[in-house]
Design a protein around this nucleic acid. Structure first.
Lengths: 150, 150
DNA sequence: ACTGTGCTTGCAATATTATTGCGTAGATAT
DNA sequence: ATATCTACGCAATAATATTGCAAGCACAGT
């Protein structure tokens, strides 16, 4: 993991569709060496995967909401059960168990307010383990990156 | 935007390193037609970009924290200034202005608690516009996807 | 200082994959 | 019926990835 590896990771996190020859040129290596490095970064697992990122607005998910949840019963078992439940929902993009007063934090990507309403019922209904939940609707996205600067 | 396009988007969001011939086979098209569809999805902007996703733990950012911030002055100008400030930080992966009591929500990817400490000072110090901030440290990541099911 | 080991490199040949031109078929509107 | 538009598959071609191989470099042990 030297300077060249880090530069490759930065470049690939920006745009993984660049050709190998192009990347090789950018870091000052031959294509074959460059390719071998990239393969190593993949096989060692520091590169987890290569994916397409969609534009949420054009994919019909223009609305985002951040929800913090406080459970009735905070036990390991109950928390796990709730996480299993929310994880199955397509609108739930991120789900974390967190420290502090709130037990679970969720990021939702939704079509509209109606979709939010429809999601609340199955997830937070009476009789589920949810004591309280607090919703923050995203007004402006100032930053949203998948890149970790190396 | 038909069923084939949606299937392609789902496949590419899972793994964008598959070959075109492979994808064509998966959706039952010839490679040339498949390629033309993918190019159209890119040019119309529904596919924003192709990127490498790193494994945070292996990239030295094993710690995550969610921070909600309440500003002293909630005005448009002041909010924008604060967002501009936090956006510059590499550890800030996501930054949103949100509705409700809290004005801004942040997702942090950090190396360790020391890095968190070092970040708090410049962002939330006395004299900045921050009235209160509340940190939730991520204990477990139950779900973290970039894919929007189509 | 010498030498063996392990690792990375670049080159050049080869294999794989992406891309394009072209003719055809279906759908829609005139 | 016919013009128009769009998407399709095939096959040739261009671009790109991949591999084998010999050489270079760094480091540890003698």
């Amino acid at each position: 993991m030297d300077q060249i590896d880090r530069k490759l990771l930065n470049l690939l996190q920006e745009d993984a569709s660049r050709t190998n020859a192009d990347l090789a040129d950018a870091v000052g290596l031959s294509p074959s060496s460059c390719l071998r490095r990239i393969r190593r970064l993949k096989s060692t697992g520091i590169i987890d995967r290569i994916v397409a990122i969609l534009r949420p607005a054009k994919a019909g998910r223009g609305m985002k909401a951040l929800v913090t949840v406080e459970l009735e019963h905070h036990g390991e078992q109950q928390t796990r059960r709730f996480l299993d439940l929310v994880t199955k929902e397509a609108a739930v993009i991120q789900a974390y168990s967190v420290s502090g007063e709130t037990d679970v934090a969720l990021m939702l990507h939704l079509k509209d307010m109606e979709a939010f309403d429809a999601l609340c019922d199955p997830l937070f209904r009476e009789g589920s383990n949810v004591a309280r939940y607090h919703t923050m609707f995203v007004i402006r996205t100032a930053k949203e990156t998948t890149a970790i600067p190396m």
